[in-house]
Design a protein around this nucleic acid. Structure first.
Length: 268
DNA sequence: GCCGGATGGTAAG
DNA sequence: TTACCCTCCGGCG
């Protein structure tokens, strides 16, 4: 689930459901018992996403920092809210019991102060989903890299919020081979890449799913091993024919994770 | 039922 | 580079 579109969507949903009122916080699993106790009963004043990080601010100096990591997930319960499962690290719920958000498996769930939150944000490059993002900063960072563009896109200090799905999909729609030098792409392909990423991330934020294929390409072969309802061009489609040119999609390790590309649509 | 990978990141070697 | 953490789920018996 969790690339930048997920965190921004969660920030929006949690803000709308909980902000401005006292929140009940608990840690059924126990690993965040002290933090939950410190937050319980306080008024949530705002929720902000920055890349893959979430920051919850309260009527006090403390900030809740959440990073979902690979397997972290928030589950939403509305109406009748039952007791949380044993694995729930943190439940945030409305005091009247009408809505609850259960967090399990996060990489980080901790309380920090404002300076700590600033320090975390300072390590991040521009986030295409944020209004304050300066794409020129990302272009400059990309231009300084001596790695492949596919590796640079996963570096959160270059761009914040891009993960393995959006890396593969954005490079595909831009016709850029993942192995091309980052500096080269910063020079001649950056504008299109930034626009593609912003468009894809926005779509994911609004719908809660990753759908990157254009209607014209929908009829092509599917059966990709991606979550239900998601539809992509190359991510995890290695060995399957490209939706546009029928060439078999290839996969190889790049930047510590498998990258996917079409040899026909993304010439080296 | 068990195993392995997964939209991520860190820290040790 | 590799090991490891977190939880869930599909594939394989």
């Amino acid at each position: 689930m969790p690339e930048g579109h997920t965190t921004h969507r969660l920030a929006r949903l949690h803000r709308a459901a909980l902000a401005g009122r006292p929140v009940r916080a608990s840690s059924p699993q126990g690993r965040f018992a002290d933090g939950a106790a410190a937050l319980d009963g306080h008024v949530l004043t705002g929720v902000e996403a920055y890349g893959k990080h979430l920051f919850y601010r309260w009527d006090g100096p403390v900030v809740l920092h959440v990073h979902l990591g690979l397997v972290g997930v928030f589950r939403t319960y509305r109406g009748t809210v039952g007791p949380p499962g044993d694995g729930v690290r943190l439940r945030l719920a409305a005091a009247d019991g009408s809505v609850a958000f259960d967090l399990s498996g996060p990489m980080r769930c901790e309380l920090v102060d404002e300076a700590g939150a600033d320090a975390l944000a300072a390590l991040l490059g521009p986030d295409p989903l944020r209004g304050d993002a300066d794409p020129e900063q990302a272009r400059a960072a990309l231009g300084r890299r001596r790695t492949a563009v596919g590796a640079a896109l996963l570096d959160q200090t270059v761009l914040a919020g891009v993960g393995n799905v959006f890396r593969a999909e954005s490079l595909f729609v831009c016709g850029i081979h993942p192995d091309r030098p980052a500096a080269e792409v910063a020079r001649d392909g950056f504008d299109g890449l930034w626009r593609a990423l912003r468009r894809m991330l926005r779509q994911g934020e609004r719908s809660g799913r990753i759908v990157t294929v254009e209607p014209a390409d929908v009829g092509a072969p599917s059966r990709a091993r991606v979550p239900d309802g998601e539809r992509v061009y190359v991510y995890r489609r290695d060995g399957l024919p490209c939706r546009r040119c029928e060439a078999p999609v290839r996969a190889w390790p790049l930047g510590g994770r498998r990258v996917f590309a079409c040899p026909g649509c993304q010439p080296q």
